[in-house]
Amino acid sequence: MSIMEIKQVGYSYDNKKKVLKGVNAEMEQGKLYAILGPSGCGKTTLLSLIGGLDSPGSGQIYFDGQDIAKTGLSDHRKNHVAFIFQAYNLIDYLTPAENVSLTSKLPPLPILERLGLTKEEAKRNVLKLSGGQQQRVAIARALASEAPVILADEPTGNLDEDTAQDITEILKESAHKMNKCVVVVTHSNELAKQADVVFRLKKGELQVLERVQDGATQPQSRRNNAPRSERRAH
C-alpha cells in the first residue's frame, strides 16, 4: 500500500525551463527510497513538491490517497512529512532538544539519545555542534514529528564518510524499524546502494533503477532491471 503517489507531475522554473515532465512514482512506508541524478536535474524540486514546499505546475501528489493540494500544503507539511536538509537547517536560537520539540510533543531527549547525542549536547547551542551531530538533531526532529514520510535532501552531503555512514544507517533504520517512508535525494552511490528503491531523474523523467524485494532483511541493495513496472500508472 503506497503512502505517497506522484501522478504526472510537471514543473518548470519561470514558465521556461521544464525541470520535471510528467513524473510518476509510488512510495510505501517501511522503505528507503533514493533519488539519484546530476546536479540541477530537479531532484530537490521533486522532493520539495512531495513535501509540499511548492506546488507542481501540473499533475497531482497524493498522500494516503488524497490530493495534498486539496487537503492543504501547510497541513501536509505539518502532519505528513518531515524534512532533513543538507545544511541541517536547525533554528539557531533553539537548543537541539528545543529544535526537536518544534513539531513534536514527545520528550526530545530519548530520541536525541537514541541518535547518539549526550544530554549535555542536547542542551547546547546548536551552532556549537559538529556537522554530524547537527544532522542527527535534524533527523531527530524529523523522526519526532511522527510524520510517516521523511524527506531528506543530501543529508550526508556535508559529512565525512564515517558520519555519513552513520546517518545512512539511521535513515535505514527509520524506514525499516520505524516503518517510515524515507525518501533521500542524493548523488552519493554509497547511500543509493543501501536504498530499497533507487530512482534516477534524467531529463525531467523518473526511472526506477533498482528494486529490492525485501529491504528489511537485505542489507545490500542489488541492481534490478525492472524500470517499467514502476510506471504502471502511465
Binding site: 513535501g51 514546499l53 501547510s74 501536509h76 507539511r77 505539518k78 502532519n79 512529512v81 518531515a82 524534512f83 536538509f85 537547517n89 536547525l90 533554528i91 518544534l102 513539531t103 526532529r141 514529528s145 510524520a147
Partner: peptide, 10 residues
Amino acid sequence: GILLAVGIAK
C-alpha cells in the same frame, strides 16, 4: 523557511 518546512503555518 525552516519553520514553514517543518510544518508550522504561516
